[in-house]
Amino acid sequence: MSQQPEADAPTDLTIADLAPGMEAKVISLQAVQEVRRERLLAYGVAPGRTIQVLQRSPATILKVDQTELAIENDVASRITVTEPNRMKRAFHHGQRRRKRRFRRGLKFLQRRKRNKR
């Protein structure tokens, strides 16, 4: 792992900002409504735990441990996460497509940062 993110550094990134294949640590679920927060915690989407985004459309698909969860963007955008970690094999697409997706994901994040400034 070359680019280890600073542990739990405060960012304003949410799961909705991650591209398919990216991994990140959950920081907070405070913005999620209590009923759903309880369920997310029970599924393992908890502060400090690593999640991986598998897919973004038609819904966000997350992987926590060996559990796959489908959540809507409304929920995904309320869960803050750390800077995404390395790219993991998302699915079983070809190598080229995976690389393309990774680059697209990185560009997306850079653009987002630029826009903030």
């Binding site: 759903r36 369920r39 997310l40 599924y43 819904a59 698909i61 559990t67 796959e68 969860l69 489908a70 959540i71 809507e72 409304d74 929920v75």
Partner: peptide
Amino acid sequence: RSPLLLELPP
């Protein structure tokens, strides 16, 4: 409306 939150079993 309650948004989707669902486990996908294998």
